[in-house]
Simulated scan of single mutants.
Amino acid sequence: MSLTPFDTAPQHGPRPLPLFLALLRSETATSPERRAAALAGLAAYQAARRPRSRRPMPVVARAGRAVLRDYGGAGRPVVFVPSLINPPLILDMPYRRSLLRWLSRQGVRPLLVDWGTPTPQDRAQDVAQHIEDMLVPLLRSIGEPAALAGYCLGGTLAMAAAAAVPVRGLALIAAPWRFSGFGPDAIERIGQLWDGAHETCDRLGLVPMEVLQASFWQLDPARTIAKYERFGRLDPASAAARSFVAMEDWANAGAPLTYAAGRQIFDDLFTADLPGRGRWRVAGAVADPATLPCPTVEFVSLTDRIVPAASAAGLPDRRELRLGHVGMMVGSSAKEALWRPLADWLAGLR
């Protein structure tokens, strides 16, 4: 899920969105100093140097527009499912913060789902069809039951897939399932945004990144502004500044959603909470975390402001962290707090 104020990929020169500027005006209405600091941070981010893009890892399977990328390693396969929102490379960040490359040296063979970029012709493909028509065929293409690991909304999809196809185990990382756990205020704000955007998205056949960004700003608008205030004070050559730029570039570069997937996320997941109420039907069955026929674990951050701990699935093996939604994946403490425990859990699977 994204917290980013730009509407174009970084290599094309990100530009602030009108919705972000409106948020900035609202959050800094009584503090011209904070507004100036946040704008200075935006300018510094736009001017920052970027590392050269890495070549994508090889494709070993395809299902529709989705592909499975192989990160090597000599162990048994583990399929990592990223969110439909933002690119999958949060799992493969630069500056030695790539979970997948690290795991490939720990006796694991990581395989990454890359959802590709939808077109208006894909408008009718909802979240359930992403699972049935792409994720499940990719899992079956491996030729043996793989372990599944899902991050953020990718964990929601991985949970449903684990109920539809045999897997060796399922690991959820900051994954929402009981969407009522976001709280009534956040759900109402997100619902109001969708009410104002769905007609335009219906005409486009896609849900543009701007709509997704703005919806998740509603979860923590103060943080969205404060992080740019802080960035403007950093030395541009510092490790902290480089990491910030890499993270914002990732958050800034997501593909749109199909209209049906966006509608299902906003209406069926957030508003109706079909998964949490045991009413979300995928691949002909209702996905239920209590009846999964495989070992499971979930990593839940008690300080996650994007996917609150109250929205987790409630699996028996629950590992609690105190890192942010993104920090638990790529922060300075991520290796000890998440990477190693995840690798140990995967090593214990049969």
Rank of each mutant, 00 (worst) to 15 (best):
P56C: 04
G262V: 12
G327L: 14
M134D: 15
Q129N: 00
L103M: 13
G143M: 12
A241R: 03
P236D: 01
R242V: 13
T119E: 13
D195F: 11
S26I: 00
G314K: 09
H12L: 15
M57K: 15
P289I: 06
R65M: 12
R203V: 15
L99N: 00
R318K: 12
T258M: 08
R263Q: 15
Q218H: 13
D317Y: 10
R319S: 01
A285E: 10
M57G: 01
L274Y: 07
R35C: 14
L172G: 00
G262F: 13
A66E: 08
R319M: 01
R189Q: 14
L148V: 03
R52P: 01
A214Q: 13
A260Y: 04
D126W: 12
A260D: 05
G107Q: 11
R62L: 13
L302K: 04
A239E: 12
S311M: 08
L68Q: 02
G41Y: 06
L99M: 14
R305C: 02
P293V: 03
G314S: 07
H198L: 03
A186V: 15
L99S: 02
Y71G: 02
I85T: 11
A313H: 06
L68D: 01
G73P: 02
G232K: 08
G284V: 13
Y71Q: 05
L292W: 11
P77A: 07
T117R: 13
M247E: 15
V330R: 06
A63I: 13
A47G: 08
S332L: 09
Q11V: 10
E248R: 06
S98F: 10
G75Q: 11
L219Y: 07
Y259A: 09
A47I: 09
F20V: 07
M93G: 02
A287H: 06
Q46W: 10
H198N: 05
Q125K: 13
G276N: 09
P308Y: 05
Q46V: 14
Q213D: 15
M329S: 06
R168A: 01
P208L: 09
G348C: 05
E144K: 07
V282R: 01
G116W: 08
P221C: 05
I131L: 09
N252R: 05
G348Y: 02
A163N: 10
Q106N: 01
G13S: 03
V108W: 06
I187M: 13
N86M: 05
Q129V: 11
L111G: 01
F6Y: 15
F182M: 11
W217F: 15
E336A: 14
I85S: 00
I265W: 14
T291I: 06
A337V: 12
P18I: 06
Q46I: 08
G331W: 11
Q129S: 08
A312K: 01
V108Q: 12
D249I: 11
S238M: 05
L139Q: 03
S311H: 05
A285N: 04
L315D: 03
A239P: 07
Q106V: 03
P56G: 03
L68T: 09
D7W: 07
W250N: 09
M159H: 09
A44P: 05
A290C: 10
W339M: 04
D202L: 15
A171C: 09
F216I: 02
P87A: 07
G150S: 02
A197L: 08
L138A: 05
A171T: 03
W115P: 10
L135G: 05
P221M: 04
P308D: 02
T296A: 04
W102V: 05
D344F: 06
R318E: 11
V167E: 00
T4K: 00
